[in-house]
Structure formats: structure tokens, C-alpha cells
Design a protein around this nucleic acid. Structure first.
Lengths: 213, 213
DNA sequence: TCAAAAGTGTTCCTTCTACACCCATGT
DNA sequence: ACATGGGTGTAGAAGGAACACTTTTGA
């Protein structure tokens, strides 16, 4: 019996106040995008290519989650799972075989393995919010502090204190303030910020190789 | 071309003031214990069995590290790496095909993949020391606080403040003091502690399934 | 002038850090 | 009595949590 290596990617993005996952509509049950590993390519690259093919957009960030054995349907499958993050906005590319994005709180009937992987992906995502800058990969190029706070609140499913949040963010020195303002609605305009790409997240619990073959 | 799934386990243990890794002596270069995945068994179990076979001892703890593609020697190999922790003491079981333990600071000529994996294993182990109780899996049943501190110092390769360390440990409520003392050497005997197995480490960044198939 | 979101400081409490001496024992 | 590691407290700094009002704008 020979194994099939299947790479599965859980695509996340934010929309308004929802955390969305991307699913391939599929036959019976929708499933996360994925495909076979290729002998000549690092798994991380294959994961990127697969998710790119499914979305027509470059993801901002991806990382490996976990690998599990999955003897399914007379077929020996090894599933290597990944998380991919996409910037908020500009999601839809409605050509037929593309992704359907849906709220994580209302994911309908996934296969067992996909549910497991989604569960773990959420744990990791939430945990990493607290000690990395991973949230920035879900934000558009420029954003207001309120939008950023809303992103944190959406993912963590809890409200945060405005002043403490802003202090924490500005203290971390990974924000740079552009000198544009966003004026919309009948209220004071908000300052726009950008992610300082140099001060990126620590290597904390991330492999040192980053795509060794 | 069909892939071969190889599970590789990095076995760690402590001895005196060294962090040791277990290597299979092997032909040209020594290598970490490992073997093929089995279709009918969760990868985590296979990893446990493999390391058990190589050491004749039960490991105290193991967790998956990372999976990488490794097209080597005309053979397509997917390497799923694990870390396993062994209690200090009672290492040697000198039957021929067993492990040779050596100091991590002086590991000789490993294969590229093994070096990579070892590097990452060390990063993970050190990181987890700070926010989990993983160190206890490297300790014998009962131990003194000085021994525990020495374990932390050995792994982190830095000295820690005695009073702060003891405060931190007792505050964490995962130590229970036995009412035995260890009397050795010409100095005051030390209190022996035991790990409180209930208050085990948080699920923090560890998959929720724990050995789903 | 009103509604709506942006923006801003202080106090308290907990946690981390640095640091030095006495205690119990064996020889 | 002395050498050896075991054991203990405190003060200052830093970081996190709680909390309410003023500002700027569009309608």
C-alpha cells in the first residue's frame, strides 16, 4: 500500500466583523483547498501554489500546522495541513471552481479531518495573535487603529479596551503612521497606519529553515 | 514516483549538566531513530513505537515538530519529525543497535536534514520551557529544586537566579513536596519534590485531537 | 446642535528583576 | 570549625487592567 501525500490549506480572511474560511464548494461536502505534494518541491511552496490556484490571489502568510495519518476510503493518505492568511477585502473571484468564504462560526458539515484541522488552525491563530504580529497579514495595506482592534476582537471573540489596545500597538513599534487620514461618516477622521515590514514577527516556534527542500 | 513517509524522532535526555540527543550509530553518519509510517496507525503512535524500539524505554513525552519534503538519493521521502523526552538517569541499554547519547553542543557530522531538525527541536524545546511544564518530563520521579533549576539552565544555556526560580516554580503549583529529603554530601539535605501530574501543561499550541487517526 | 467614532492619561495591582545572608549537615 | 550546597525576603521597575471624557467631523 503506498501513501498519498495530500496538502490541505485552511485559508483565512477577515470581512467586516467575521473571520472567514475559504472552502472549495465540492460535491457532497465542501472542503479546504488542497492537492498532492510534489516530489520536486518543498511542501511549503506547494501549499502556497495550491492556495494561490484556488484563490487567484497571493496569500500574505502561510505556515504549516500539523501532519496526520488518514487511512480513508481504501486509500492511505497523509495529510499535511497549512494555514494561509489573506488580506481583508477583494475576495471574490467568482469563476466556478473557486472558493466560497464562510464565517468560521457557521461552518457547515465539514469532513471529520477538515473539522479537526480547522479547530487546530483556530487555536494556533488565536494563540499567535498574542505574541506575534500575525494579525497584520489579515489587514489591508493601510488601516485605522479601530479596524485593527476590530480584527483582534473578531478573531479572539472578545472585546478589548480601546486605550490599552492602542497603547500596546504603538508601543510595539511595528506600526507606522502614514500622514493620510480616512474621512468617512459624520465623525472625526481616523489616522491611517501601515505595518512596518522590517520589524516582523519573531521566529518564535517557527522553523529556522523557511522552505528548505 | 511514490513517496516514502519517514518518521524521525529526536530523543532528548539530561545527564549531569548536559542535554543529550540519542543517535543511532549507523553506517557513515549517525542518525536519529526513525522508520516508515504505517498505514494503520496514527503517526504519533508510530513515533512512540519507533523511539521505544530504539531505546527500550518509554519516553515521557513526545510531540510532532514539522514535516518536510526530502527528495534524496533518487527516493522521494517525506520526513515527519518528532521530539521525545526521556527522564534523566537509566539511559544505557547497550545492546548493539541501540542509541548513542551525545551532548547537543557537540553533535558530530549529522546529515543535513537531521541537523535542520535538531536545530528546530532545540528552538521548540527552549521556547516551551518558558510557558509549559515540559521540563518535568526530563526529570526523574523525585528531584530537588536545585536539580530542576540545573535542568532549566542546561537547556537554556544560561544561569538563573535561585530565589526567583524557586518562587516561580512554587507559585506555579505544579510541584508537590514529598516529605523525604535527599541527604548527600556534607551540606544541608534537600527537599524532594514530585511533579503534580494533574496540573499538566496547557494545550497551548498543541493539537486538540491528541492522536486522532 | 447633535450623533458618531477618534483620540487621549492615570491609578492600581501584579509580575519580574536584582541582590546577600543564614541554615543544616558531613568531615 | 569549616566547607558545601540548601534555603529564604525585599525593594524597585515594568507591564497589564480598569476606567471616562474631550475632539473633530458631517448632516
Amino acid at each position: 500500500m503506498t501513501p498519498h501525500i495530500r496538502i490541505v490549506v485552511v485559508p483565512f480572511t477577515l470581512d467586516d466583523r467575521s473571520l472567514l474560511v475559504g472552502l472549495v464548494p465540492g460535491m457532497e461536502t465542501p472542503a479546504f483547498p488542497g492537492g498532492p505534494a510534489r516530489p520536486d518541491e518543498p511542501l511549503d511552496s506547494t501549499a502556497r501554489h495550491l492556495v494561490r490556484a484556488a484563490t487567484d490571489r497571493d496569500e500574505q502568510y502561510s505556515e504549516q500546522l500539523y501532519t496526520l495519518n488518514h487511512p480513508d476510503r481504501e486509500r492511505w493518505e497523509i495529510v499535511v495541513s497549512y494555514v494561509a492568511l489573506f488580506r481583508a477585502g477583494s475576495l471574490a473571484a467568482p469563476k466556478p471552481p473557486r472558493l466560497a468564504w464562510q464565517d468560521v462560526r457557521a461552518t457547515t458539515s465539514l469532513a471529520d479531518v477538515d473539522r479537526l484541522i480547522l479547530q487546530y488552525a483556530l487555536i494556533r491563530l488565536r494563540a499567535k495573535l498574542s505574541y506575534t504580529n500575525i494579525a497584520f497579514h489579515l489587514m489591508p495595506e493601510t488601516f485605522t487603529l479601530s479596524e485593527l482592534q476590530s480584527a483582534y476582537e473578531t478573531i479572539l471573540e472578545q472585546v478589548l479596551d480601546k486605550r490599552n489596545f492602542r497603547r500596546r500597538m504603538t508601543a510595539s513599534r511595528i506600526l507606522v503612521q502614514t500622514n493620510e487620514l480616512r474621512r468617512e461618516g459624520n465623525h472625526r477622521p481616523a489616522a491611517l497606519y501601515r505595518f512596518a515590514p522590517d520589524r516582523d514577527e519573531p521566529a518564535y516556534l517557527t522553523p529556522p529553515w523557511v522552505n528548505a527542500s
